[in-house]
Simulated assay, not measured.
Amino acid sequence: MNKYVLMVGLAALLTACGEKSEQAAAPADAPKTAQQVAAPAAAPTPAQGNDKAALVEQAKGTVQALGGTLKGELEAAMKAGGPVEAMNICHTKAPEIAKAVSAEKGMEISRVSLKNRNPEMGAANEWQVAVLNDFEAKKATGEDPATMAYAEVVDKEFRFMKAIPTGAVCLKCHGTDLSPEVTAKLTELYPQDKATGYKEGDLRGAFVVVKQLTQ
Rank of each mutant, 00 (worst) to 15 (best):
T214A: 15
A77G: 09
A24F: 06
K71Q: 15
T62D: 04
G81V: 08
V101C: 03
V56P: 02
K99D: 06
A38I: 03
Q215R: 10
A151Q: 15
E57H: 07
Q64E: 13
N116F: 01
T45R: 12
E96Q: 14
E126N: 13
N133F: 01
G175H: 13
P40Q: 12
F158E: 07
V8N: 10
T147V: 11
T62R: 03
F135N: 04
T196F: 09
E200Q: 15
K156E: 15
Q212D: 09
K60Q: 15
L213W: 06
M7L: 15
P191S: 12
V37M: 10
P40M: 13
E104Y: 06
V129A: 06
L178A: 10
C170A: 04
A76M: 07
N116I: 05
M107K: 05
P31A: 14
A24C: 04
M148N: 02
A42K: 15
M121P: 00
D202Q: 11
P46C: 14
E157L: 14
E85Q: 15
A47F: 05
E104P: 00
K199V: 14
T147L: 13
E73W: 05
A59R: 01
E181C: 03
G67N: 02
P119N: 12
D144M: 09
K3N: 15
P44R: 13
V5F: 06
M87P: 00
K71M: 11
E143S: 04
W127N: 08
P27C: 07
P180A: 13
V182G: 05
A168P: 00
N88V: 01
C90Q: 05
E136F: 04
T176H: 11
P191C: 11
N125M: 10
A16T: 00
K60A: 02
Q64M: 05
Y190H: 08
D202M: 07
E57N: 08
V154T: 13
P165G: 10
A137G: 03
S113K: 00
A86S: 14
T33F: 09
A124Y: 05
A30Y: 04
